[in-house]
Design a protein around this nucleic acid. Structure first.
Lengths: 153, 153
DNA sequence: CGTGAAATATGTATCGT
DNA sequence: ACGATACATATTTCACG
């Protein structure tokens, strides 16, 4: 699906604030409400807009720990990788999973309520995978930045 | 601010789908629309809900590269760290910044449109910082998972 | 893409528990 | 203090130009 300048302006807006009314959005990009609504609807149907969510302030919730986990696989085999990815994706603690090049094979961002919970996670997900050779955990003291928006070319 | 079971159910819902109408939300958690609206408003005012955004499908947009960047500082000094954090936070390419413990000091998730753009970023942000000792870049071939929701204790 | 009117939802005041 | 009901206001949504 081709995105024109108007679509990009809409997405730019919505990536920063999706709570504004359709009217406000229309005004912000210089469209009539109906035309604006049609475009947003089209972007949703086309799958460009995947989801609309609220982001919460971690400080206002029960404290949690973020871990950056680097994983080195024993063998670079497609099916084994695939199995690992599927395993990892269904775990709630895993918030992000990157497949990377170099010495490391995967980087996970894992969020847990406590060190014990992380131990459990490692036992359950990491130590049991027989293609996992080694992993290293970087414990996050602080998440200084977290934004979800993407540049639109 | 204390969150009761009803607040948690609301946040649970909104973290997965913030596009639903207040009526639908009210019904989902078993409240009247007005009571539901009051609670959501309160959660926003209290700063528990920080932002409402749309998430886009990376596949549907112009391709981009994610980098996981591990940074080791020369000296563990608070003011120098602070300066680096502030520098890094204002860069659009930096989507996430974690301050971690261990050999590595910072982990960044950086998103760029091309390898050249990443070179530029390194020149501009990393190579110019005089407290930065060393960094390692893990190039993401694929982002297998990315979710924003948090567990609510 | 814009206009305008019907359908829906939001927001507020008031009452009841 | 919190939720429900009902009503006024605002927004969404659709047919048509």
């Amino acid at each position: 699906m081709a995105l024109d300048a108007l679509d990009r302006r809409l997405l730019e807006q919505l990536q920063h604030d999706a709570s504004q009314t359709n009217q406000a959005l229309a005004h912000a990009v210089g469209l009539s409400p109906s035309a604006c609504l049609k475009r947003v609807k089209r972007l949703k149907e086309a799958g460009v807009i995947v989801q609309q969510v609220v982001l919460l302030d971690p400080q206002k919730l029960a404290p949690s720990l973020h871990m950056v986990v680097e994983i080195i696989m024993a063998r670079d085999h497609r099916a084994l990788y695939q199995r690992f990815v599927e395993r990892v994706m269904q775990e709630d603690e895993v918030k992000q999973c990157y497949q990377v090049t170099g010495e490391v094979d995967f980087v996970l961002i894992v969020e847990v309520v406590s060190m014990e919970a992380y131990d459990d996670f490692c036992d359950r997900v990491l130590y049991t995978d027989d293609n996992l050779q080694k992993f290293r955990t970087l414990i996050s003291r602080q998440r200084n930045k977290f934004v979800t928006h993407r540049a639109l070319s």
